[in-house]
């Protein structure tokens, strides 16, 4: 099977400061990938470039064998979406309006959402448990609720691939598990390909089937959590001494604090 999403020799720099160095990777349909690495390792930039959100220097990202630079924005948005970590909102939009915005790539100009779009949005809100406050304003709800609303909007967009930039970093444990469980269901039931930038290594290993470890703009390791979580690799990349434990068949990273 040919890869679904492919990154070929991608290098990227902001104002001549290199951020990504010769990244290559391929993603199969239905993958659940965690993109991990220290702050500044290039996770967010890589996600934005894969999602077509930042301008690509050349044809370095391909989706279903087409370079994304050659695909129309609306067509690309039907195949793939990107969800930022934070959602600053200046204007008062309701939850329902935000979720319906996911239908944009399916609508012609000058039109309003139809019955079908409302049905899809409603279903997306049910999936993310946001339907009960759909007529409230986005700025009035909590961080965890905002993240679920943005996820509902992404689901309404009905893409094959979702790229999420640290979807759980700003949330407490309950909301982290809630978001990741919804994502797991989307992956298992609708075969949506997921790539998540994540900070929490243990949550990443628990939910993602494949981890890609970035450091200094380059891929250090790419594989299952067991393949990536190796004591010397993690210690090198993060600059912290760690112990690895296995609990209920899952591998956990435990930092050794300076006193011990």
């Amino acid at each position: 099977m040919s890869p679904h999403l492919e990154v070929k020799n991608l290098s990227f720099a902001y104002d001549s400061k290199p951020i990504l160095k010769d990244i290559s990777l391929s993603v199969e349909k239905g993958d659940f990938i965690g993109l991990i690495g220290p702050n500044g390792s290039g996770k967010s930039t890589l996600l934005k470039l894969m999602g077509g959100v930042l301008n690509l220097p050349d044809d370095a990202v391909w989706i279903n064998e087409h370079p994304i630079n050659a695909i129309k924005k609306k067509e690309l948005a039907r195949a793939m979406t990107w969800i930022p970590q934070e959602h600053p909102m200046v204007f008062p939009f309701t939850i329902q309006e935000i979720v319906l915005m996911g239908r944009h790539p399916y609508l012609p100009p000058l039109s309003f959402e139809g019955e079908e779009d409302y049905r899809i949005a409603r279903h997306a809100m049910e999936t993310t448990q946001t339907l009960q406050f759909s007529d409230r304003y986005f700025n009035e709800i909590s961080g965890g609720e905002k993240q679920r609303v943005m996820l509902a909007s992404a689901i309404a967009q009905d893409p094959e691939i979702m790229l999420l930039d640290e979807p759980t970093s700003a949330l407490d444990l309950k909301y982290q598990v809630q978001i990741l469980s919804i994502l797991k269901r989307l992956n298992e039931e609708k075969d949506i390909t997921l790539i998540l930038a994540m900070h929490d290594l243990n949550l990443a290993s628990r939910y993602c089937r494949r981890l890609i470890l970035l450091n200094d703009g380059a891929i250090v390791r790419d594989g299952t959590p067991e393949e990536v979580f190796q004591k010397e690799v993690i210690e090198n990349v993060y600059g912290v001494n760690v112990n690895l434990h296995t609990l209920d068949g899952e591998i956990l990273v435990h930092p050794i604090t300076s006193g011990s």
């Binding site: 999602g51 077509g52 930042l54 948005a77 039907r78 930022p84 959602h87 944009h104």
Partner: peptide
């Protein structure tokens, strides 16, 4: 509307 919620997310909505 979409640009008013953010340029990057507007791009990813098409």
């Amino acid at each position: 509307n979409l640009i008013s919620t953010g340029v990057h997310s507007a791009t990813s909505r098409g």
